[in-house]
Amino acid sequence: MKHLLFAAGTLLATQAVAETPVLTVYTYDSFVSDWGPGPAVEEAFEKTCGCDLQFVAAGDGAALLSRLRLEGARTKADVVLGLDTNLSAAARETGLFAPHGKSPVVDVPNPFGEAGAWPDETFLPYDWGYFAFVYDKTKLSEVPGSLEELAASDVSIVIQDPRSSTPGLGLLLWIKAVHGDKAEQVWADLADNIVTVTPGWSEAYGLFLEGEADMVLSYTTSPAYHRIAEEDDSKAAAMFPAHYMQIEVAGKVAASDQPELADAFLDFMLSDAFQQVIPTTNWMYPAVMPEGGLPAGFDAPLGTDHALLFAPDEVAATRETALGEWLRALSR
């Protein structure tokens, strides 16, 4: 009974604000949490748009895309924020997204084209980072300097499963990008370093902080979290010759009933008001460097010559091959 009353109340409340247009943005869980960028982004955008910005959280990036596919053209989303370049080709193929029609200048290392250009006509980047192995400086003294050195060492690592986690998929593509046909051998060499493979990032990072392994697969920006939020300078990311990138993107839904608001949101996304929130809430690099630069405690990003990335349309085929190699090498 209570729920009927509650439902009725919600319905009335919704009708009362029906004049204010609603912009619905689908995103992943950690974006909307109190510690994520969500609250600040919502407040800043609602000041200017004369609208009600509503975030809908749907698990992680991969689950987000699945939800969108389930809903198809009936989706209530106007904007989807939280896919990455490993998912964007599959997302584009659904035909659910409209071209953004913008040509922004971005501060994202671009291994394919000229610096600052953004070639994707469907998705726009809002932040990015490098995958890296994070360790505790007070506990690990001999830090490996490359994937081969790591594989040859007896340093223990926790990684994520590429079948259920985006960082896990990142490492799979990283090793494939560096070692190509020899990737399977590298995985076989790494097998004795791997303490365990977790379903997601949270479990792996939790195990690492509990001291279950010397290193964990995370991001080069992870130590900044400990430095800034916890005033703890003990964590560092191991620097390798090249690191695989994750570029997080957003796109406009073609069936949106608020296309102008969706456009306005994408513009806002690349503005300072949005971008300056990113480093200390999403713990990633901003796609467009805000005025004032990175906060203290954040290392400057590595340059383009250290960046690895498969083009979105190569990911699917590469992933399939690499996943087979990974399974074979680690199941021995």
Partner: peptide, 20 residues
Amino acid sequence: AVALTLGGGPRATTVELAIY
């Protein structure tokens, strides 16, 4: 999650992970 986290690698893959 238990099987994967403590299983130590893809040898410990369960049907539920395959579903996921």
